[in-house]
């Protein structure tokens, strides 16, 4: 029971991170119908930007307040990651609109390899550890020497995720940008005829997706305290799994899927085998796509003949 509660907390934390990345997948898929394969690596890049910014703030500028540093890191990482994703869309995807269907996907695979290796070359292949940022924990219960703890950083992650999702939901549902986005999802040509700047809307979608991934990147760095150039691939695939599980194209679905994947992964590691945790995640992806391709909250597709 104690272990269960502890794993529940850990799983929800991890799931929040996956959920934030998954939104990027699901939004891009919704608006241009492509699997943005490089999104996981964008997340990894954001973690590196956060790392550099954090080092700059703490070692060079000498900022001692960890919360102030984190807040600055968050804003900086969001800005630069958004810029990166904006440029990626411009260079690698926009020229391919109207090309054959798999072209953007292949381009995205290339972009994913490019990003991972760019970071490897520029930052080196070694793991980058950062000193633990927020070590405080709240002991929730204690029995027979086993403590169920809730770390402050977990609280921060979950609260921040919830707040961001609220703001994000408002953006999509209530603002003209959100309306434009939903219009483009339905019919890009018609949206353009009605005066919506489609290119602009798609760019903004990439920017928002990247900003959310950057938040995930900062939290990943804070939570695990280490980052590596290869860290984009597996979390990327898991977040994609989350998006598919929740129903690709559905925003609440992405979050729900993220939480589920986080929970499954932590419970699998705790109760079965930690070696096969990635196998479990990949298997869920395969099983979902085969048996429930519309996901939990998605709409089924009717084949147009």
């Amino acid at each position: 029971m104690d272990i269960f509660v502890q794993q529940l907390i850990n799983g929800l934390t991890l799931g929040s991170i996956y959920g934030l990345i998954a939104i990027g997948y699901t939004m891009v898929f919704g608006i241009i119908g492509m699997v943005n394969f490089a999104h996981g690596d964008v997340f990894m890049v954001s973690a590196f930007i956060a790392l550099i910014c954090f080092l700059l703030l703490t070692t060079v500028l000498g900022i001692t307040s960890i919360f102030l540093a984190l807040a600055i890191v968050l804003v900086v990482a969001m800005f630069f990651t958004a810029l990166t994703n904006w440029a990626i869309e411009r260079v690698a995807y926009r020229p391919l609109r109207g090309s054959f269907r798999l072209a953007p996907m292949i381009s995205a695979i290339g972009m994913s390899i490019l990003l991972a290796n760019f970071v490897q070359v520029s930052q080196g292949p070694r793991n980058k550890p950062v000193p633990p940022m927020i070590g405080d924990v709240i002991v929730l219960m204690e029995r027979d020497g086993y403590q169920v703890t809730l770390a402050w950083k977990q609280v921060i992650i979950m609260v921040l995720t919830a707040a961001l999702l609220g703001g994000f939901w408002y953006l999509v549902q209530k603002t003209s940008l959100g309306r434009a986005q939903r219009a483009c999802e339905q019919d890009r040509k018609m949206a353009a005829l009605l005066g919506i700047n489609v290119d602009h809307t798609i760019s903004l979608t990439f920017v928002i997706g990247a900003a959310l991934a950057a938040v995930a990147g900062v939290m990943y760095l804070m939570y695990y305290g280490v980052v590596n150039f290869a860290d984009g691939f597996v979390p990327g695939v898991k977040a994609f799994t989350a998006a598919v599980l929740g129903g690709i194209g559905s925003l609440p679905g992405a979050v729900l899927g993220g939480l589920l994947i986080g929970l499954i992964e932590t419970f699998w590691s705790a109760y079965f085998s930690i070696e096969y945790k990635d196998v479990a995640a990949f298997s869920i992806l395969a099983v979902t796509l085969i048996f429930l391709p519309q996901g939990l909250l998605g709409r089924p597709e009717v084949e147009k003949v």
């Binding site: 072209a103 292949i106 972009m111 490019l114 990003l115």
Partner: peptide, 9 residues
């Protein structure tokens, strides 16, 4: 990676 993107574009 660069080659893949460049070919596609």
């Amino acid at each position: 990676g660069l080659a893949m993107v460049a070919i596609m574009v």
